[in-house]
Simulated assay, not measured.
Amino acid sequence: MNIVIVGPGAIGSLWAYSLYQAGHKVSLWSKHIRPTSSLTLENVDGEIHPHISFPAQEYSQLNHADLILVTVKAWQVTQALSPLLEHIHTDTILMFMQNGMGATDQLFPALKHYPTLLATTTHGAWKPSSDYVRHTGLGQTTIGALNSKGESCQFIADVFEHALPNSLWVNDISVPLWAKLAVNCVINPLTAIHQCKNGQLLSDTFTTTINKLVEELVLVMSQEGISITHAVLRQQILSVAQATADNFSSMQQDIIHQRPTEIDFINGYLVKIAQQHGIKTPENKQLFQQIKKLEKQWSQL
């Protein structure tokens, strides 16, 4: 397949390299204007794979793409993709892989012309430099359709499975997206505010806060048709914190490097949906406001 990765950050670079290794023709598109972009991959076992040069910023690649994988930050989705749509054939599959939910909402009217997919992954990746990506943890990628045209694209799960297991197709992508959102609503803001690793959230210090956050999440998710108990959701969140104990969350990294976070699409999204159902979420709202306050501090510098 001809595949373009829009936003080759850590996760985008991991997929670019993996899909290339699986035999696909891969090119990159980013905010940096340069004719080629090189990547070296270090896998989870510490093995370093050869340096590969990818074509970049080529409109011809967009014109002939079979699949465009969008891996920019959630707040960048609209501004990144809107200028490109006129160069993309309506048969091209669009796949969005971001933290949080709601990133494609503004684009939804335009996306009806394309087979469109949403995906979420628990693979870990870190990009210490522009040309080096480290696969920091094995995970699972879940893919599903955003619109009716996307429902005929189940084969994409096999493409991704061949490139980087485990990947699977689900008929209702909202279920895994809400599950991932719940994890992010707890781990991301808490690690960002307290500037700690994920595993530190397992200490008794955070028990009360996590329980209150989970209580709010269960209420909202039930109104969205996602049935889950407090005990099960809490355990899922703590299991992720345990499995990624030595990692820093993406939001923690955004805060420490004074970059915009995805809080609007994580706790912000949760609060917005809760309001639509008349549910109060004071704990999630407080975390949202604390992160926005931190962002505001450096935006005024």
Rank of each mutant, 00 (worst) to 15 (best):
G225I: 01
G225N: 08
G225M: 07
I226H: 15
I226K: 15
I226S: 10
I228P: 01
I228R: 05
T229F: 03
T229I: 02
T229L: 03
H230M: 04
A231C: 10
V232H: 15
V232M: 14
L233P: 08
R234A: 10
R234S: 14
Q235F: 09
Q235P: 05
Q235C: 08
Q235M: 12
Q236R: 15
Q236S: 15
Q236M: 11
Q236V: 02
I237A: 09
I237D: 12
I237Q: 09
I237H: 09
L238Y: 06
S239F: 10
S239W: 09
S239C: 09
S239M: 11
V240T: 09
A241T: 06
A241H: 07
A241R: 04
A241S: 10
Q242A: 15
Q242R: 13
Q242V: 05
Q242D: 11
A243E: 11
A243C: 08
A243Y: 02
T244D: 05
T244P: 08
A245F: 07
D246L: 11
D246M: 13
D246C: 12
N247T: 06
N247Q: 10
N247Y: 01
F248W: 14
F248T: 09
F248H: 13
F248N: 11
F248M: 12
F248R: 13
S249A: 13
S249R: 04
S249F: 02
S250P: 06
S250N: 02
M251Q: 06
M251S: 08
M251K: 10
Q252M: 13
Q252L: 09
Q252E: 13
Q252W: 11
Q252C: 14
Q253M: 13
Q253S: 08
Q253P: 03
Q253E: 13
D254Y: 05
I255G: 07
I255S: 05
I255L: 10
I256G: 06
I256K: 12
I256L: 14
I256C: 12
H257S: 11
Q258W: 03
Q258P: 00
Q258I: 00
Q258A: 10
R259L: 12
R259Q: 12
R259V: 06
R259A: 08
R259P: 07
R259H: 12
R259S: 10
R259N: 12
P260N: 01
P260I: 00
P260D: 01
T261I: 04
E262H: 02
E262F: 02
E262K: 04
I263Y: 01
I263A: 03
I263M: 03
I263D: 04
D264S: 07
F265H: 06
F265R: 07
I266E: 01
N267E: 03
N267C: 08
N267H: 10
N267T: 12
G268P: 00
Y269E: 09
Y269V: 03
Y269N: 05
Y269R: 15
L270Q: 00
L270M: 11
L270T: 01
V271Q: 00
V271Y: 00
V271C: 11
K272W: 04
I273H: 06
I273N: 04
I273C: 03
I273Q: 14
I273G: 01
A274F: 01
A274M: 02
A274L: 01
Q275H: 14
Q275G: 11
Q276G: 15
Q276W: 00
H277S: 05
H277E: 06
H277C: 07
G278L: 07
G278M: 05
G278N: 01
I279G: 00
K280E: 13
K280N: 14
T281K: 03
T281W: 00
T281E: 00
T281V: 09
